[in-house]
Amino acid sequence: MTNPQPILRLDRITKRFGGMTAIDDLSFTVRRGSRTALIGPNGAGKTTVFNLVTGAVPVDAGQIFVDGRDLTQMPSRKRVRHGLARSFQNVRLMPHLTAIENVMVGQHCHNGGLFGVLQPVNLWPGNRWRAAARAALCESGLEQYAAATVKNLPYGVQKRLEVVRAMMAQPRLLLLDEPAAGLNSAETEALQVLLGRICSSSDVTLLVVEHDMHFVGALCDAVVVLDFGRKIAEGSPAEVRADPRVQEIYLGTTIAEPVERCHVARSA
């Protein structure tokens, strides 16, 4: 299947918060099947891009196309049905649900009608939606946590659970907001294994905001660099690394940053 159309196309997007322009006339595309990283210094507008694409905040100007379809005016709730799912910078699982229930929240867009809402997922162990959620946990090596309350789980497990939950929506484009932030090296490795498996077993496209350049280098095959809400470079990781502007504004500051962020994420 060779569909030449990009999975995501931003066309001259602008977003202002008060007097500050967070995203300034930004255009870029994400190639179908790629694993694209969105990088840039703090405040460059990376998370804002995610919020605009998922519809959490409206754009001031420009258009957003997912899979060729204009989603600019679509309410955020309906976008998941057009193949969009995301994870969050600080884990946002539902603290009062168990791990498997959290994963089942991800199924909602495929099982949300009156019949779906009345599915006895917690009553009937063999319910097919529950079984699907359990299978997803199994494949991700998280089965043992299925019945645990998520707020008590280790941070790395929570981060992986969030990815599993997002994948239950069967997205064509998965947005990951700093998936490795706050993880130790073992946890980062487990996450990489999970993402690698997801990429090889489905045709999902990844768009990843990440500060850890090793993680980006190991996972991604394309990079878009933002600064002050504008695109300043894009290309393969090697090309971007070689770009003098990138070296000037971004790579010079990145060495210490992930460590610092790690503590913030932990204490949050």
Partner: peptide
């Protein structure tokens, strides 16, 4: 509450924004 309704209601209670992004009305 043993159906998806229970999960959905708790999800709305816990994090309305995320529930919305996950497609819950």
């Amino acid at each position: 509450f043993a159906t998806r309704f229970g999960i959905a209601v708790t999800a709305v209670h816990d994090d309305e924004r995320v529930a919305d992004l996950m497609g819950l009305n």
